[in-house]
Structure formats: structure tokens, C-alpha cells
């Protein structure tokens, strides 16, 4: 637990935890509003967004990519609404139609354009590269107080910290309104809560979380964290506040345990190489949900 840990594992671990929490927080409300799959749809359309951003700017820098992905998420949500209204089809089918089409367009664009010089491919988009987000400039725990070393932190870390903080703040400030409009939209409207605006804001927040986390950890973790920790938390309690707290706990445990198992698990089993941390984090989240389904106190349907 010395210098090597700080240099190689501390930042990926923190980034994994922050991504998990950033996605799990809005995931609670999506789950209760039966919009759990919005996260799935958004994380698929992030790919065309970043490809278009790359084609426009010609570079793989963070902000254009984030903007492109955010724009793609908004386009996707509008398209889903349009298909739902025009075709009068169920939301699931509209979602499936839109996100597969946009994802296909993203893959095609990627194949058509010359991205051999930059690190941009479908697998990266899916799996992320959590393991590579190491802190070169760190020499030990002391580096945490060294401004020069701190300047060399992977940029994903401060970005995710800001996004997580912003999401937490949003939920804390609008907690009452969100809770009312989630559980009883009609009542919320009568007491003057702008439910549609709030629903839209929640989707935008989801997109921001997805995009920020996606850049660091790939879309698997994003989808898994939107659904699994809130779902497991839902089986633990009937109170919204406690559910959110449980989901944050589950998200953190998934991220830490998943990262550790991916990095050290194979070594313990005698293999030389580590396995995908993103995949392992998703798997651990799934195991937690599975245990919750079998044993959590509030697992069964009531009424």
C-alpha cells in the first residue's frame, strides 16, 4: 500500500467509484419512474456523438467529445419521443429502434473515417480503459499534497468529481420536488411542481453522468450502474432516502471490489494478466443485485 498503489491504483479506483456513484444517483429516480432503460439508450448513442465530434474537430480532446455525446443524447431522446408519437408505438420499441440506428450510424462513420492515428474504436467505447488512467507524477501518499504532482492527475478524475458533486447537489436541492413528481405526478402538478421540466432535467442529468463516466470507464459500467445498485437498493428499503444511500453504498462496493478482483483476482488464481476492470465492476454489481433478489428484506412485491 505504498507509492506503487498511489501511482497505479488510486486514481483508477477513485474514478471507478465516482463514475459508479454519478450513475447510481440519478438511476434511483429513473428506476422508480420506470425509465431504467433510458440509461441504456443514452450510453449507446454516446458513440455516434463522439465520432461526429471527432470528425468535426479532428482531435480526441475531452470537451468536444463530451459536447458531441451530450448532443447525441438529446437528439436520441427527441427521436424517441418523435417515434413514440408518430408511430404510436410503446416506449421500449421506440427506444430500441432509435438507439440501434444511432449506434449503427456511429459504427459506420467510424469505419468510414480514418481514425487509425487516434485512439478511438468501438471496443474502447464499450470497455473503457480504467486501468490506463494512472497517475504518472505520483511518488507516494505525499503527492496528494504536492501541487505539481496533482497537476498531473488524469483529467477524468477532477471532471468526474465535479459532475458527481453537481448531480448530488441537484438531487439535494430538488429532492422534495423530485420525490413528489416521481411518486405522484398528478399531485405534483396540482401543487405547482413543473413535472415535465423536472423529468427533462433528470434525463439531461442522466446524459451528463453517462457522458462523463463513459469517457473514463466505457458504456458497460454506465448501464450497469444506472440499474443494478438502485435496483438492489430498492429491495432493501421502502424509504427513498435510504434507497439512495444504499445505492451509493452498493455502487462504491461494486467499483472497489470489481477493480480489486480484476486487478488481483487472476494473480491470486495464478494467472499473469489482469482482466477487464469495467466488466468486473459490472459483474460484481450484478452479483450484489442477485443476492438482494434472493435475500433482501423488501424483495417481494406488495399489493
Amino acid at each position: 500500500m505504498g507509492a506503487e498503489f498511489v501511482q497505479l491504483s488510486l486514481t483508477p479506483l477513485l474514478i471507478g467509484v465516482l463514475s459508479a456513484v454519478a450513475c447510481a444517483l440519478p438511476g434511483n429516480f429513473l428506476l422508480l419512474r420506470r425509465q431504467a432503460l433510458i440509461g441504456d439508450a443514452i450510453s449507446h448513442v454516446v458513440l455516434p456523438g463522439i465520432v461526429v465530434a471527432f470528425l468535426v474537430t479532428g482531435t480526441v480532446t475531452a470537451w468536444p467529445m463530451m459536447l458531441g455525446a451530450g448532443a447525441a443524447a438529446i437528439v436520441a431522446v427527441l427521436m424517441i419521443e418523435a417515434v413514440k408519437r408518430l408511430g404510436r408505438v410503446e416506449p421500449g420499441a421506440a427506444m430500441g429502434l432509435v438507439f440501434t440506428t444511432l449506434f449503427a450510424a456511429g459504427v459506420l462513420l467510424l469505419e468510414q473515417s480514418d481514425t487509425s492515428a487516434v485512439h478511438l474504436d468501438v471496443e474502447h467505447a464499450l470497455n473503457g480503459n480504467l486501468e490506463s488512467l494512472i497517475w504518472f507524477d505520483a511518488t507516494g501518499w505525499g503527492s496528494l499534497l504536492d501541487p505539481q504532482a496533482l497537476a498531473g492527475l488524469p483529467p477524468q478524475l477532477p471532471r468526474l468529481a465535479i459532475v458527481t458533486l453537481a448531480i448530488g447537489l441537484f438531487l439535494a436541492l430538488l429532492w422534495k420536488e423530485l420525490a413528489i413528481s416521481t411518486f405522484d405526478a398528478a399531485f405534483a402538478r396540482t401543487v405547482g411542481v413543473p413535472t415535465r421540466l423536472l423529468g427533462g432535467a433528470l434525463v439531461v442529468l442522466t446524459a451528463i453522468a453517462a457522458v462523463a463516466a463513459f469517457d473514463a470507464v466505457g458504456s458497460i459500467i454506465v448501464i450497469a450502474m444506472f440499474v443494478c445498485p438502485p435496483a438492489a437498493a430498492r429491495l432493501m428499503t421502502d424509504r427513498l432516502g435510504r434507497q439512495v444511500a444504499w445505492s451509493v453504498l452498493f455502487a462504491i462496493v461494486s467499483a472497489v471490489l470489481g477493480y480489486v478482483l480484476a486487478g488481483y483476482g487472476p494473480v491470486w488464481l495464478g494467472a499473469a494478466n489482469s482482466v477487464s476492470a469495467a466488466g468486473m465492476i459490472a459483474t460484481v454489481a450484478g452479483v450484489i443485485l442477485w443476492i438482494a433478489c434472493l435475500a433482501a428484506p423488501r424483495r417481494s412485491r406488495t399489493g
Binding site: I223, L235, I281, A282, A285
Partner: peptide
């Protein structure tokens, strides 16, 4: 469980894919 079908779908697809 009390989870809705869409939550089950999201959980299964992401976890199996991650695995």
C-alpha cells in the same frame, strides 16, 4: 421481486455483457 421488467432487462443485459 418487486422490480419492474425494464429494470430486470437493464440489469441482466449490463451484467451479462460485463461478464
Amino acid at each position: 421481486t418487486r422490480l419492474s421488467e425494464d429494470a430486470a432487462i437493464g440489469a441482466v443485459l449490463s451484467v451479462f455483457f460485463g461478464l
